[in-house]
């Protein structure tokens, strides 16, 4: 079984703070990590490989330093890595990103299963998985929290819904987006990490021409959506103390909530 995992390197958003003066993001000292959901995808890929034999390839699109994310994935048991890195890829929206990843996966070819995280914590879009599946024309199941069975041509998984779940059988090849409930990711083993560092050969770096793409299809230029502006969310506190007896203050509060269309 050939499995591809899509891994994104993201800033640890729990560390990201706003500079109260400039209103811009303070990025200094913010660590880059493997997107949390993607760790679960890596774990699932590696444990499937261990169970049914096969090969796991991690693919990441990002700046040169995203190679660290791939090395770490290799420390967790991934066999090969491909870093898609080119200035032409930068500024991509999900349309251009899914195209780039899709092109690379076509080039890798011969895959049975693609695993990715449900969403990346920097953009929170959850769009890449389904868009890559559509690009490749294969079946997809999102919000997967259990892989029940995997055969040559089909698999059975459980998909989380707001108020329960579904057991779904789908054909292979398939793309799954996974959530944290799926498993407990293993820690990367040091020897694996060292191997990954020493044998950078096992990590290939591809640019736009390696995947046969034109600049006009990639990055900001190839994007269909564009950021018009960004701004800090307004958290100006009203700082109002409500006074009176219990009925009065609660009545007052309900009034405020209604005024702000919160209820």
């Amino acid at each position: 079984m050939n499995i591809i995992v899509l891994v994104k390197q993201v800033p640890d958003t729990t560390d990201v703070k706003l500079d109260p003066k400039t209103g811009s993001l303070v990025r200094e000292g913010v660590e880059s990590i493997i997107n949390p959901d993607d760790r679960h995808a890596i774990e699932a890929a590696v444990s499937l490989k261990e169970a049914v034999k096969g090969k796991v390839t991690a693919v990441s699109m990002g700046p040169p330093q995203a190679i660290d994310a791939i090395s770490e994935a290799m420390g967790m048991g991934v066999d090969e890595g491909i870093l898609l890195s080119d200035m032409a890829f930068s500024g991509a929206d999900t349309w251009a990103t899914s195209f780039t990843l899709g092109k690379a996966i076509e080039k890798i070819g011969n895959y049975d299963l693609i695993l990715c995280g449900r969403q990346a914590i920097d953009g929170d879009t959850a769009q890449i998985g389904p868009q890559v599946a559509e690009y490749l024309g294969i079946s997809q199941v999102s919000y997967v929290f259990e892989i029940e069975e995997i055969k040559k041509k089909t698999m059975v998984v459980k998909r989380r819904l707001e108020d329960g779940f579904e057991r779904i059988q789908c054909t292979l090849p398939a793309l799954l987006t996974v959530i944290g409930e799926l498993n407990q990711p293993r820690y990367p083993v040091v020897s694996g990490l060292i191997d990954a560092c020493k044998e950078k050969a096992r990590i290939k770096v591809w640019n736009a021409s390696d995947i046969g793409a034109q600049a006009s299809e990639l990055g900001l230029e190839g994007s269909l959506t564009h950021v018009v502006k960004t701004f800090a969310p307004k958290f100006k506190r009203q700082g109002e103390m409500l006074e009176g007896n219990v009925q009065e203050v609660v009545g007052d509060l309900i009034g405020k909530l209604k005024e702000n269309r919160l209820i």
């Binding site: 990201v16 993001l25 950021v227 960004t230």
Partner: peptide, 17 residues
């Protein structure tokens, strides 16, 4: 929409499709 875990709001336009 909120981005970066809600630390920033981004306004996005889709002009080309």
């Amino acid at each position: 929409r909120p981005a970066f875990g809600g630390n920033v709001m981004a306004t996005i336009a889709s002009r080309y499709s």
